[in-house]
Every structure is written in structure tokens, then in C-alpha cells.
Simulated assay, not measured.
Amino acid sequence: MEEALGQVPGFMEPLAEPASDHSWGLFRDLVLGETELSAREKALVGLSAAAVTKCPYCTYFHKEEARLTDVTEEEIEETITVASNTQYFSTILHGNEYDHDEFVAETDEIVEYVSEQEEAAADD
């Protein structure tokens, strides 16, 4: 941990064993490791989750992580706005107990329509 981060962060110290090893492993492998997502993409995903969960610690961390990957301030703002949009509609869907099967069917129809429109535009 110290080699990768330059220190052992204080927030890792109160984790009981074996949670500390597992927690560091998850962080190291998912956030710092080479995965299907780029470091930039992972920073934006982390920022989205942090903003929606309203965690000031994670929000600060993931904003700084994003800046390390050359994410612009405008992209940070847009990421947070997209995250809030998702949370907004999730609240509407859950609060109104919208039928999940109907939602899936409508989404599938929308995806099919948009795909057909994109194919038609590409053919023009």
C-alpha cells in the first residue's frame, strides 16, 4: 500500500483483519489495477457513485483521481449531473412502483428504435 500510495492512509488503519487485506486488495485491483475500464473511466464511475451516495470523502477522492487522469472540470460537472439524473429517475420509478417488466419492455423498444435510426443515418 505504501509503495502504491506513498503512505498507509489513516482510514485503512481501523479495519480489522482480515478486512484490511481484502479491502486493500479490492482497491488495488479495481482502482489501481489494469482492468477493462481505463483509469479515467474508473475515476468517473467512482465520482458518479460518490456523488449519488453523497459521501464527501469519496467525492473528494474521486474528483482528485479524475483530475489525475486529465478529466476536465466541465467533464466532472457533467459526470455529477448525469449521476443526479439517474438518481432522479430512479426515485420516480421506485416511488411510483413502476412495473419493472413494463420498464424493461419499453427500454428494449427504445433501444431497438434508436439502433434502427442510427443504422438508417449511417446508410444515408
Score class of each variant (00 low, 15 high):
residue 108 D to K: 00
residue 24 W to D: 05
residue 74 E to I: 11
residue 5 L to P: 04
residue 30 L to F: 08
residue 79 T to Q: 08
residue 68 L to E: 13
residue 121 A to S: 11
residue 61 F to D: 02
residue 87 Q to E: 10
residue 101 D to R: 08
residue 82 V to W: 15
residue 110 I to A: 00
residue 76 I to F: 13
residue 82 V to C: 14
residue 69 T to C: 14
residue 5 L to T: 03
residue 123 D to F: 09
residue 14 P to H: 11
residue 49 A to L: 15
residue 34 E to A: 00
residue 83 A to Q: 09
residue 112 E to R: 00
residue 115 S to T: 02
residue 62 H to R: 05
residue 9 P to F: 06
residue 30 L to I: 10
residue 105 A to V: 00
residue 76 I to A: 10
residue 118 E to P: 02
residue 18 P to V: 07
residue 44 L to P: 07
residue 51 A to G: 04
residue 69 T to S: 14
residue 117 Q to T: 05
residue 101 D to L: 09
residue 97 E to A: 14
residue 4 A to L: 04
residue 9 P to S: 08
residue 38 S to Y: 04
residue 81 T to P: 13
residue 43 A to P: 02
residue 85 N to V: 13
residue 81 T to D: 15
residue 89 F to L: 13
residue 12 M to I: 12
residue 34 E to V: 01
residue 56 P to M: 09
residue 18 P to C: 05
residue 10 G to I: 05
residue 13 E to R: 15
residue 48 S to K: 09
residue 52 V to H: 00
residue 86 T to D: 08
residue 116 E to W: 01
residue 7 Q to V: 13
residue 31 V to P: 00
residue 112 E to H: 02
residue 18 P to N: 08
residue 66 A to S: 15
residue 111 V to E: 00
residue 13 E to Y: 13
residue 120 A to L: 14
residue 111 V to C: 00
residue 51 A to P: 01
residue 69 T to Y: 11
residue 14 P to E: 10
residue 92 I to K: 14
residue 56 P to R: 06
residue 57 Y to Q: 05
residue 122 A to G: 09
residue 71 V to Q: 10
residue 13 E to W: 14
residue 123 D to C: 09
residue 33 G to R: 01
residue 2 E to T: 12
residue 40 R to A: 08
residue 37 L to S: 03
residue 28 R to F: 05
residue 50 A to K: 02
residue 101 D to I: 05
residue 100 H to Y: 12
residue 70 D to C: 12
residue 82 V to M: 15
residue 12 M to N: 11
residue 2 E to C: 10
residue 24 W to L: 09
residue 3 E to V: 02
residue 64 E to T: 15
residue 17 E to W: 05
residue 69 T to P: 00
residue 79 T to Y: 07
residue 23 S to K: 13
residue 36 E to W: 04
residue 46 G to T: 02
residue 44 L to V: 08
residue 56 P to H: 07
residue 89 F to S: 07
residue 67 R to P: 10
residue 43 A to Y: 04
residue 67 R to A: 12
residue 87 Q to M: 06
residue 47 L to I: 07
residue 65 E to L: 09
residue 7 Q to W: 12
residue 100 H to R: 14
residue 11 F to I: 13
residue 47 L to K: 06
residue 45 V to S: 03
residue 103 F to Y: 12
residue 61 F to T: 07
residue 72 T to P: 10
residue 91 T to H: 07
residue 24 W to N: 04
residue 50 A to H: 03
residue 97 E to S: 13
residue 55 C to V: 03
residue 55 C to W: 06
residue 61 F to K: 05
residue 103 F to H: 05
residue 53 T to Q: 08
